[in-house]
Amino acid sequence: MGLQYRVKKVNLDLYKRKVEGYKVQFVNQPIIMEDNLVEYISRSAHIPRSMVRACTMAIADAITFYVINGHRVSFGKFGKFHLKVENTCVDTPEECLADTVKRTTLCFTPSTDVKKVLDKASLIEYEELSEE
């Protein structure tokens, strides 16, 4: 199995001229919930579920610790977590204080390997089940 898509009809409004077109829409598969993932990891790694939860919590805490201290954290082959700092410009260097920082957010940048893998992933047209 690969990534599934369906063809969707779209109406575009190009310079006040309505145009009909078609585009590919991604079909989301059911979400793998936390409990299901923990069960999957527990079975594949042969460790208790409670231990899996403790490990994921420890990993999340470690990522948070390094990110808020300004590091870039590798997350396997998937990409990197890093901090994004948004701030405002001021007229003089003396005005550059901590108050000029608007917000800090956690960002995830997928690696080029993942992008290549996903670009090469097989795309299958989704066939909706008929009522007959």
Binding site: G2, L3, P30, E34, L37, V38, R53, D61
Partner: peptide, 15 residues
């Protein structure tokens, strides 16, 4: 890797 390549979203606990 497995679930995302098959179009699923994966909820990782605490992450």
């Amino acid at each position: 890797d497995y679930f995302c390549a098959n179009g699923h979203s994966v909820q990782v606990p605490y992450l």
